[in-house]
């Protein structure tokens, strides 16, 4: 089956990989394309059930993509099981959207990328933009026929970083995408999320602080390429050839920044450290820095 076309929107065309993003207008036109599956991935596990884009299936970051025992993502078999049950085939174009500036949608897309799902895209602006444009929403849960998604081994070497790799990476570019209060060490958790804290406050030595949501405009869409370059290249001093590690608290906010650097700005070596501050900050004898950048 032919893959649905890419969105030719002018803003998207400026990005390094414009095929990784679609606008709400494009999705409105293409959501019934035969080989396209819309996926909603939210922080709030019930939000999908209050209404979603017609035809969309829910993928929950915690219940579907995590292994509850090993603090890891599902393995190839687990991912194949989830995809097959949701009716997503390996050659499907998957358009992912969600709440909070696509925070959890970007996280889901990053996990899809660990399994190299060939065509996974984000809906620019996410759920809030679609709903704000009073486009159709429904509570009807689609029944997609199960597929036979192949078992693909998870690739943890390309876009994922582990603790010891980050330790060896010190001195090279690191972006901490948490709030300034978490970065300085003043807060042991994200504002309003005290249950997911660490025993020490601060950041990984040498990290620059660029809170993730600065990549999003007021309406939740990604900022235009020139503004993103000013932020990451100008302000944070990165360059596209850099070997970059991004992190936050558990790797979800930094998935958003990983998406920006990789797909919007075309950086070729960006890894997300999903252990992030809940691992680093709690680990015995790992070096940290305190204070503002």
């Amino acid at each position: 089956m032919p893959a649905p076309s890419s969105d030719t929107d002018a803003k998207l065309a400026d990005y390094a990989h414009p095929a990784r993003l679609v606008t709400t207008a494009w999705l409105a036109e293409h959501r019934d394309d035969p080989n396209l599956v819309v996926v909603e991935s939210d922080e709030d596990v019930l939000l999908y059930d209050t209404g979603h884009i017609p035809g969309a299936v829910k993928v929950d970051w915690h219940l579907d993509l995590n292994d509850p025992v090993t603090r890891d993502y599902v393995d190839g078999e687990g991912f194949a099981r989830v995809m097959s049950a949701k009716g997503i085939s390996r050659d499907a174009t998957v358009v992912i959207y969600g709440d909070k500036n696509n925070w959890w949608a970007a996280y889901a897309l990053w996990v899809f990328s660990l399994f190299a799902h060939p065509d996974a895209r984000l809906l620019d602006g996410g759920r809030a933009k679609w709903a704000g444009e009073t486009r159709p929403m429904t509570t009807e849960v689609p029944s997609r026929p199960a597929t036979d998604y192949p078992v693909v081994e998870r690739d943890d070497t390309t876009i994922r970083a582990f603790r010891d790799q980050v330790l060896a990476h010190l001195g090279r570019p690191l972006i901490d995408v948490r709030s300034p209060g978490e970065f300085s060490g003043e807060l042991l958790h994200m504002p309003d999320y005290p249950q997911e804290g660490a025993v020490r406050g601060g950041h990984i030595p040498g990290a620059a602080n660029v809170p993730w949501a600065r990549a999003a405009a007021e309406d939740g869409t990604f900022r235009p390429r020139a503004e993103l370059e000013a932020l990451y290249q100008g302000e944070a001093g990165l360059s596209p050839a850099d070997d970059v590690v991004v992190y936050c608290r558990i790797g979800e906010r930094s998935s958003h920044t990983w998406f920006v650097l990789t797909h919007l700005l075309g950086y070729e070596k960006v890894r997300n450290y999903d252990g992030s501050w809940t691992e680093w900050g709690n680990s015995v004898r790992l070096p940290i820095e305190k204070g503002a950048s």
Partner: peptide
Amino acid sequence: PPEAPTTRG
């Protein structure tokens, strides 16, 4: 808020 149905639940 309505966009937080779990918390509302």
